[in-house]
């Protein structure tokens, strides 16, 4: 295989590393591009215990049955996308093994796994003004009483379709977006965040 340094993230052209090194601002909101990660789209019947068991055996994580929630910790999580659709995440490079494990576990069921790792960029926004920034483009109510840590939602942000996941305190959100939109979305968010003491991390 080719050296991994030849690999580029979706926003490599924006020179975020250099800008992060300049280290300005950040009291309001800190933006960064998360690195490569594994995302496997799985489909199956949530009501079928065999499906849930297969997912658990292949991933080690319980399938979140509740809408708009995330199960698991660290790199390995399962995000609810719809009534018969989830994302299994993993560390970079796990995709082939995960797909294989899932397909193996799904034998005999109508359930599928499909690698979509390379299709999404993941933007990270954290800091006390994060909700203010997101409110400029998300029609969802992100009040902490309504949308908390461990919740996710597919929705629109600006004019892009995204998956929004509150991953932690701060608050800290991750935004999954198709790579082709990521340049637009980053610049859009950056312009908004400019009013909220923006810092950039690599």
């Amino acid at each position: 295989m080719v050296e991994t340094y030849q690999r580029r993230t979706a926003l490599a052209h924006l020179g975020l590393v250099g800008r992060a090194a300049a280290g300005k601002g950040g009291a309001g909101v800190v933006m960064s591009e998360a690195g490569h990660r594994t995302i496997i789209n799985i489909r199956g019947n949530a009501q079928d215990p065999a499906f849930a068991a297969a997912v658990k055996s292949a991933t080690g994580v319980d399938l979140p049955a509740k809408a708009n929630t995330v199960a698991g910790t660290g790199a390995r999580q399962i995000l609810w996308l719809g009534p018969n659709e989830w994302w299994v995440t993993g560390a970079d490079g796990e995709a082939d093994a995960l797909v294989e494990a899932l397909r193996g576990a799904f034998t005999g069921q109508h359930a599928t796994a499909c690698d979509v790792s390379e299709s999404r960029a993941v933007l990270s926004l954290k800091g006390p003004k994060t909700r203010e920034v997101l409110a400029r483009g998300v029609s969802l109510d992100l009040h902490p009483k309504v949308f908390g840590i461990g919740q996710c939602a597919q929705t629109g942000l600006s004019r892009c379709n995204v998956l929004l996941h509150q991953v932690g305190e701060g608050p800290h959100f991750e935004i999954y977006v198709l790579k082709s939109f990521s340049d637009y979305l980053w610049r859009w968010l950056e312009q908004i965040a400019g009013d909220f003491d923006l810092g950039i991390e690599a």
């Binding site: 580029r8 082709s180 637009y184």
Partner: peptide, 10 residues
Amino acid sequence: DFLDPIRKTP
């Protein structure tokens, strides 16, 4: 530039 998303290939 922000009127509509511009989708860019890799």
